[in-house]
Amino acid sequence: MKINTGLGQDSHAFCDTNKPLVLAGVVFDYPKGLDANSDGDVIFHSITNAISSITGVNVLGAKADVLCKQGVTDSAEYLRLAFNDLNHCKIQHIAISIECLYPKISPMIEKMKFNISKLLNITLEDVGITATTGEGLTEFGKGNGIQVFSIITVTE
């Protein structure tokens, strides 16, 4: 059995539009969304990048840009594309680390885990999510946006 590990990162600043804040497909009750052509779902983007680091197929960028121009701004669609590229690989675990001051992440972790597990056909126990303010040392910890790192482990 071959084991592969992928690392993904994404970050976006908050914007002052009426755009909803979406994280892992969950709409948060927060007055600012994230500045992006898509819905700005940094969690789905980070996982997409982690999968791309395994498959070598870069979904975010050219493929996502084409979809955005066609009106497809739901980041779950980008994640589905990356997931399909895994072919015969089985996801064993996803670890997600979120850095932000706002919104509070903990109350929504179970909903986010549910969405991720459903989308990627894995169990809730296969998804780990942690959140930190990073003691306010970065722009994310100061409340100016959200940064996410994801590590995915797959087997062939």
Rank of each mutant, 00 (worst) to 15 (best):
G40P: 08
I152Q: 03
V127Q: 08
F83M: 02
A13E: 02
V59K: 05
I129T: 06
H88T: 14
T73Q: 13
S117P: 08
H12Q: 15
I116N: 07
E139A: 14
V42P: 00
V127Y: 12
K19V: 09
G141H: 15
I3T: 08
E99C: 15
K118P: 00
G141R: 05
I152C: 07
A62W: 05
H12G: 10
L21A: 06
G136V: 12
L67M: 15
T17W: 06
K113C: 12
A62D: 01
N84T: 02
I122W: 05
A62N: 04
S38G: 06
I105H: 07
L81I: 15
S97T: 12
K142M: 14
L120R: 09
V72P: 01
V66C: 01
G40F: 10
S106Y: 03
K69A: 11
K69W: 00
K113P: 02
S75C: 15
C15H: 09
T48P: 06
G136I: 07
C100F: 06
P31W: 02
L119M: 14
I116M: 12
I129A: 09
I91S: 04
P31K: 14
S117N: 08
R80W: 02
K104F: 06
A131H: 13
I94N: 10
L7Q: 11
F28Y: 15
I43K: 13
V42H: 04
A50I: 11
S75G: 06
V72L: 10
L60S: 00
T133F: 13
I109D: 02
G8Y: 06
I151T: 13
T138Q: 11
I96N: 01
D41T: 04
G145E: 06
C15Q: 09
N18T: 10
S75V: 12
N37W: 07
G71M: 10
N144D: 02
I129M: 13
L23D: 04
K104H: 10
G8P: 02
K63I: 03
E139Y: 01
I3V: 14
N84I: 04
E99H: 08
I3L: 09
N49A: 14
I54H: 01
G33N: 11
I129F: 07
T17A: 06
A95G: 00
C15W: 07
K19E: 10
E125W: 10
G71H: 12
V27D: 00
T55M: 03
L79M: 10
S52T: 10
T155S: 10
Q70D: 05
D29K: 15
A50H: 05
C100L: 05
S117T: 04
M108L: 09
A13N: 04
E139T: 11
F149L: 14
I91Q: 02
T132Y: 14
L120N: 02
I54E: 03
I96G: 00
Q147P: 00
V154G: 03
A36W: 02
T130P: 00
G134I: 14
L120T: 01
S52P: 03
E156S: 06
